[in-house]
Amino acid sequence: MYKVKVVLKETLQERGMSINELSLKSDVRRAALSQLAGGKRENINFEHLAKIAEALNTSDINKIITLVKVEENE
């Protein structure tokens, strides 16, 4: 079984960008970005992902999300 993991925190660090800056550039609420970056959000809004990718100037979705294998008992 796989789970989608948001890797936003790592990407922001690589680019020297804060969540506040990303919020301004992407027009996604800071609270939503913080929850995504911290792994506290269960549902992922695809419109938000598109806005984040545009703000980060990337078409590589792997810069934002990845799949991780989880044990079936989790």
Rank of each mutant, 00 (worst) to 15 (best):
R29M: 10
Y2S: 02
H48C: 12
Y2G: 12
V68Y: 03
E47K: 14
E10Y: 03
S59M: 12
R15K: 11
A53F: 03
D27W: 13
L67P: 06
V28H: 01
D60H: 01
I65K: 02
N62F: 15
A55M: 04
L33C: 04
E10K: 13
K9Q: 07
L24F: 15
S34N: 04
M17S: 01
L33G: 02
N20M: 06
H48N: 15
I44L: 13
K40Y: 07
T66M: 05
I64P: 03
E21G: 04
H48G: 09
V28F: 05
L24H: 11
T58W: 10
N57A: 14
M1P: 11
T66D: 15
E54K: 11
I44Y: 09
K69Y: 14
K9L: 08
N73V: 05
E54M: 14
E21W: 09
G39V: 02
I44M: 07
I52W: 04
D60I: 00
Q35I: 07
N45H: 14
I19C: 14
Q35K: 14
G38S: 11
F46R: 00
I65S: 01
K5L: 01
K40P: 04
E47V: 04
N43R: 07
T11I: 14
A53H: 05
D60S: 02
G16C: 00
V6N: 05
I52M: 06
L12G: 03
K69S: 08
T66L: 06
E42P: 02
S23H: 07
Q35P: 05
G38Y: 13
R29I: 09
A53G: 05
K63E: 08
I61T: 13
S26P: 01
L8D: 01
E21Q: 15
A32L: 05
I61V: 15
F46D: 09
V70E: 11
